[in-house]
Design a protein around this nucleic acid. Structure first.
Lengths: 341, 341
DNA sequence: CTGAAAGCGCTTACAG
DNA sequence: CTGAAAGCGCTTACAG
């Protein structure tokens, strides 16, 4: 049991007195028949020598690995951290290793990483971050993913906009529509929206849902009711500042993501503006931090960990037929939103 | 540029009219001389054919890969999410892929994963989670890591307790000592400690620091002043409940981690106990959420992302000489802690 | 500087 | 059911 790295299949075979082919079969194919005595001998030898297969040799021979690729925009964001947690636990259950990369919302980086992962022959590719509005990038991604899928890879997206692979569809539009609807029914008439970069499809969808919800009641957002900032706490801070500095500050501040709403809450607090008395605030996502916020954050709750698990589950299925799992977003009204005074 | 996965080095060599050996050298060894004309021809062919080296073939031939392993306890915890963000960005800079695994604080799982990663011939192993107090496990880990290091692998721990590889040493003891000290100087005399599982060295260290800080002022914790719970928000909730339900509730609740303190804050709020008027609360870590908490959380701030970057930086260095980078934890006093009434 | 060849450690048709 | 052999796609001594 010395340095295992020196133990090759060959050594096991020799030790067990069988051919290397037989050893390979006994060790890696449970459904393989073979004489029970032989099998035991091989397993015993492997155990005794501390044999561990070289995954690269295996990958080279079989043209497939035992890893999966996980592409997120930013792990530091709890949204992705939770989702990743879900992916990782299902992957573990299946004995798969997870290769995680962060694009920081840069399409070029995303493409580069996807290529890298495909080159690694990952078994599956989970694309967790929102797709971009970028035709050239889409085309390049499609080319990669198509070839990947044809070579046996499995792809699942947690965003619309990729006409390939399985899909975990978070109902961004519907969730935000219902939330906006609820805000109007609470009595709000003036809104300020803290949005992220418009090149993200997810941002567009949430914005669209928001508009639908308001429109239902005849409310239409004007150009400067929406401010586009970074999809982060800091973005939320600056967004709140911009909107609250207008001559007519809105009565309800709706952010397209919890992190942004949390940032907004922080800015409001620092500036002595009380929530929900002077302004209501809402988010989207359902981060644990939303529950601990003071006042507790009204938001659209999405079961992020389960989304990750579902994505990884789908990744295990054959690419055809394509599956779509819809995930509802449930508006949860908490203290950060109330009827305007 | 059809299906790249069919393009092998051989094809590039043929296309460029050189031997496969030359093609290999031109493509993967920038320091290789060679006729400039030839080099250009090879590069052009590779580009034209859309060649991408098979990393497994490369790994098999060189016995080393272009990935690093990252072992954390739980990505869903912001502490590790931030740290991972740091590791990932430095890895990206170096063109390395990160294999991330979560142990959920289970030694057996940790060992299993470490083996898996070593088998993958990861270039480096970043062990970010606290080590355990478990002699058998330590021995097994040591054996693995030693062999790994001897075969050229680089290991760095963000915890004491592993006498091997580089070390990013967060000053758990000192940070907690200074924080406890500050609490006493604020006027506190009775303490309740929300601790995590004692099998984690990090928990032990923070506890030790805490005791040192109190002892300096002649304060000694009694047995039931400390409650050991899960290292999570829920643990914090139940810990606060236990301690505040005593006949003599403490005036200052100190948790060994921010998530726990946040959970405690939540429990106190739900139960109408005001902070810091009735009880002060402190954490450890410096999560962004600590700043957004209400009242803002007093804690020991650790630059988590930088810790991750530093760890990955060290991972790039040769194993010898061994480096230790000390990271200070700075107590930051915020509204959650105040003089007792 | 360049090429022919062996080797990295597996898997898997192909025979027997 | 088992084994000898070819092959997966690279790298790297070893010659020239």
């Amino acid at each position: 049991m010395a340095d295992h790295s020196l133990v090759r299949l060959q050594d096991v075979a020799a030790h067990a007195g069988v051919s290397i082919a037989t050893a390979s079969r006994m060790l890696s194919d449970p459904s393989y028949g073979g004489r029970a005595a032989l099998r035991e001998r091989v397993l015993a030898s492997a155990a005794e020598l501390g044999y561990r297969a070289n995954p690269h040799a295996r990958a080279l021979a079989t043209a497939s690995s035992t890893s999966v690729g996980l592409v997120v925009h930013d792990v530091r964001d709890s949204y992705f951290a939770l989702l990743s947690g879900g992916v990782i636990s299902v992957a573990e259950r299946e004995g798969l290793l997870v290769n995680m990369v962060c694009t920081y919302r840069d399409p070029a980086r995303e493409l580069e990483y996807v290529k890298r992962l495909i080159d690694q022959r990952v078994r599956a590719l989970v694309l967790a971050g929102s797709a971009f509005r970028d035709t050239a990038h889409d085309a390049a991604m499609r080319t990669e993913l198509l070839a990947y899928q044809e070579s046996g890879g499995s792809v699942v997206s947690v965003t619309r906009g990729r006409d390939i692979g399985h899909l975990v569809q978070i109902d961004n539009i519907g969730g935000m529509r219902r939330l906006a609807d609820a805000m109007v029914e609470l009595g709000h008439t003036s809104f300020g929206v803290i949005a992220g970069p418009l090149r993200l499809l997810t941002v567009r969808d949430r914005l669209q849902g928001l508009r639908q919800g308001l429109k239902k009641h005849g409310i239409v957002l004007r150009r400067d009711d929406v401010v586009y900032t970074d999809l982060s706490r800091e973005g939320g801070l600056s967004g709140a500042q911009t909107l609250m500095s207008r001559r007519n500050p809105p009565g309800c501040l709706m952010a397209v993501a919890d992190v942004m709403a949390l940032g907004a809450l922080s800015w409001l607090r620092s500036n002595g503006i009380s929530v929900p008395e002077e302004v209501s605030v809402t988010g989207f996502g359902g981060l644990p931090a939303a529950v601990d916020a003071v006042p507790r954050l009204t938001t659209v709750e999405v079961p992020l960990e389960r989304v990750g698990e579902t994505a990884m589950d789908l990744a295990l299925r054959p690419p055809s037929p394509r599956h779509t799992v819809e995930v509802e977003g449930a508006p949860v009204l908490r203290e950060s939103a109330a009827a305007p005074r």
